[in-house]
Nucleic acid binder design. Structure first.
Lengths: 192, 192
DNA sequence: TTGATCATGTAATCAGTTACATGATTAC
DNA sequence: GTAATCATGTAACTGATTACATGATCAA
């Protein structure tokens, strides 16, 4: 049901169509949650039926614009107040890192380098967004903008830490492969 | 299909039963992936049918122990070599952080404090595991143990960074609520 | 006019969770 | 003996992805 709250929150921040929400999920909101249009449209219809959102206008090409109702906001706040949070982790990169032992050292180093590249790329994107905020954002922004800036900061720190980790891991993996290549240096613990 | 590779990798590292794998998913492997027994048992049966794993023994209470076959290892390696990685993010905490604007400042600060607590708790757990590794692990361990140690490092850095972020965010949220409480200090940008 | 993008929807399938169901072993 | 844990399985349901389907608008 968490997609429902994501939609309520996004539509509370700013009225939008299903298509607009789809784009937000593939941009800013995608750092927190994502969904395909085939999941968004039916959920919007259900929210509309439950009077959590309302249609406030239309655009060209059958565009339907929605906004969160007062009831929807209450529902959103009830969820936000609920202290039970799902922290289930499903991270393909982490799983692959866990299994690098099954690859050659060179391939493992290559994997970690790609991870570093990815995180640095993500960081560049976030830094561009961060640059658009005023320097004195802590006092110059409203609550909505501040929570956006604070969540952005989460991404900045996350990708910084993971880029550094991947660099470190690539070094270690490469280091090991270099040692293994020295004739006679391949010892017990390098096999299996 | 990623659960399949998770099982192949875990069973390649060490033969186990479905129940053993379930426990691994709720411990070490849970930092990368997780699954319920109702998903594990059918997938093991399918892997067995595809000759990716084989039954190598049994234990009490109908316990069936599996091991990854050579074909299974090849399948695992093919996946590891595939450069396309799913990086879809679905993080309830991040989503909630994004929507803290809809809560009161005090509630938001409380949310961030809980996040900090969670990450510090997770960090403590990882540090205990890290303490069991030898100090000279970079040379003293085999490839399998090293990839485990390197993945553990990922978690250490991740939770460290996020604990620091949450502290920072809690401070900012509390700060703001303190300012808002000064009579006449609640200004334009604190509303909506 | 035609190709790209905007825009919405449904259907089929796959992945993941919760609930149902059963029985063996072990520790007390 | 009896409660806890070990151990495996299936069924029903929900969430998420991929594929099918259609049509309007806009820019070249």
């Amino acid at each position: 049901v968490i997609l429902r709250y994501a939609l309520l929150g996004l539509l509370a921040a700013e009225p939008a169509s299903g298509f607009d929400l789809l784009r937000r999920f593939s941009r800013t909101a995608g750092y927190a949650w994502s969904a395909h249009h085939s999941q968004i449209y039916p959920e919007l219809a259900r929210c509309l039926g439950d009077r959590l959102i309302e249609e406030i206008g239309a655009g060209p090409r059958g565009k339907r614009i929605y906004r969160t109702t007062e009831l929807g906001l209450q529902t959103l706040r009830a969820w936000l107040s609920d202290p039970s949070i799902d922290r289930t982790v499903r991270s393909e990169p982490t799983l692959r890192s866990f299994f690098t032992w099954a690859m050659g050292d060179a391939a493992a180093a290559e994997f970690y380098r790609r991870e570093a590249d990815y995180h640095r790329e993500a960081l560049r994107g976030l830094e561009q967004i961060a640059a658009e905020f005023p320097d004195d954002w802590a006092v110059a922004l409203n609550a909505k903008q501040k929570s956006g800036r604070m969540t952005l900061e989460r991404g900045l720190r996350l990708h910084t830490a993971l880029a550094e980790w991947a660099d470190w891991a690539a070094e270690h993996a490469a280091e090991r492969s270099a040692v293994a290549r020295v004739p006679g240096a391949a010892s017990e613990h390098d096999r299996q």
